[in-house]
Design a protein around this nucleic acid. Structure first.
Lengths: 257, 257
DNA sequence: CGAAAAGTTGATTGTCTTCAAAACTGGTGG
DNA sequence: CCACCAGTTTTGAAGACAATCAACTTTTCG
């Protein structure tokens, strides 16, 4: 039982296997570099990119990095913590459009109208690098790799949202939750965490909003997965016991006719 | 009755109020310029942008401009015709992610992995400008306005998809269809068409796929709107009789708590 | 023209939502 | 340090909405 949920929780309080505290404020020696910056730069280019980071900013749990309507002036690279982004309709309904973690970029929505069109809220105490957008523009004119990297980041977001649309448009509750869990655990694994255990940073309500389900449905579906022995759930701590069966939920039901 | 549905249909067969046939192959004198290119360029810059257009390409109804898995090498600016883009899950289910018309850009999904991740299919005979992506990269390094324009196009797509996610995640069938019709008519109006009449280029099935509904539900909802006097439907020809009530469908139901 | 595709409408079913109550958790202040 | 309280989660029962299944009509296009 070396990997019990309790052990995972402990590991988790001492989070950031990738980001020791003693780090200089620079991309060039940031452990998240491969996640949020282009690779294969020479020293000169790296120095320039370093100059891009204006500041870091700490964001307390439950507070916003930016909100709808605020002026856009920077993108943010997440260093630590998990964020949610959500859009709000005129009538007050809102929709979580994504959960973002270390190495991912938020703020792309603001570019079109020079104004943010969604809220980015920290689900736990977090820290971000502030990347002033006009600096990104200048630099990417000089450093081709940065230009292409930015394009890829934006394109990746478009493709991710295609996937969410597929989920929301065609999947049933069980499939949605399975897809959600598999996606989360895959991203956590890429960051050095367990491939089978995770701590949810968001509420059932927030998961439901993201998946187009009510919180009760999310809760019930978790319970059903647990009953069937596919996962183990203790509040926000989840252990995946049978990845294959979870994956199976995604491929099965339409049977592809 | 100057704007009868029949009249609209007639107008429609003689489409292209914005693009006479005698046009040179250049952005500088393209009537869609404001839609798909940056504004406020000097002559020198305009000339460079013109050089970006490698070719035009005609796409027959029901054929693909590109398909999932094909190598990405260009973005496409739609000159005439309407496209749908759709993603396909491993199990064969697919989801229409958008309908694109004159002046809009498709192909952004291909940038991340140098490979398209969705299909773009013409719903009617269409023509596009081919914009080789490496040329866009070079040019946007030289022409700041083009660079910023590209960023805005991508950001706009991200924001649009946020809206679709809100629709798929929170709206009921009537609201979805109302939102769809209002969005469509608004974009057509921006292109010089009627604000109250439109010809759907897509099937009920395709509308349903986009809205996360079955085709029967789309058909029923059209019928209900018609019964209630909000619209008039004759197959694919739709006349909007009461925009305000349609708009009301979007704001009402949650009453915003 | 004729076959295939698209659209409409009805009856029934299934899934998710809604409403409700109770249990649990974690943080705060006495 | 413990009690308490608000927020979160679980679970049940009933209801609503859209899906499914099915039959039929209309339109499109080769």
């Amino acid at each position: 039982m070396t990997h019990s949920i309790a052990a995972n929780a402990a590991n988790d309080s001492g989070r950031q296997p990738l980001t020791p505290a003693s780090m200089k404020v620079a991309c060039s020696n940031c452990n998240l570099r491969e996640l949020c910056m282009p690779v294969g730069l020479n020293e000169e280019e790296m120095k320039r990119i370093d100059s891009l980071i204006a500041t870091r900013r700490k964001v307390k749990r439950k507070t916003a990095l930016f909100r709808t309507g605020e002026k856009f002036h920077a993108l943010y690279a997440i260093r630590t913590g998990v964020f949610k982004t959500c859009v709000t309709a005129e009538d007050g309904r809102d929709q979580v459009t994504g959960f973002q973690m270390a190495g991912e970029i938020v703020g792309l929505d603001g570019i079109v109208h020079d104004q943010h069109t969604c809220d980015a809220v920290a689900l736990e105490d977090a820290e971000v690098c502030v990347l002033p957008f006009d600096r990104i523009g200048e630099l990417s004119r000089e450093v081709g790799a940065l230009q292409h990297h930015l394009h890829r980041v934006m394109s990746r977001e478009i493709v991710r949202e295609h996937g969410v649309m597929l989920l929301l448009g065609t999947m049933r509750a069980e499939e949605r939750l399975a897809a959600f869990l598999l996606n989360l655990v895959q991203r956590l694994q890429a960051r050095g965490f367990s491939r089978s255990e995770l701590v949810l940073r968001m509420t059932r309500q927030e998961i439901g909003s993201y998946l187009g389900l009510k919180l009760e449905t999310v809760s019930r579906t978790f319970s059903r997965f647990a009953e069937e022995g596919m996962i183990e759930v203790h509040q926000r701590q989840v252990r995946i016991l049978d990845v294959e069966r979870l994956r199976g939920l995604l491929a099965q039901p339409g049977s592809g006719f």
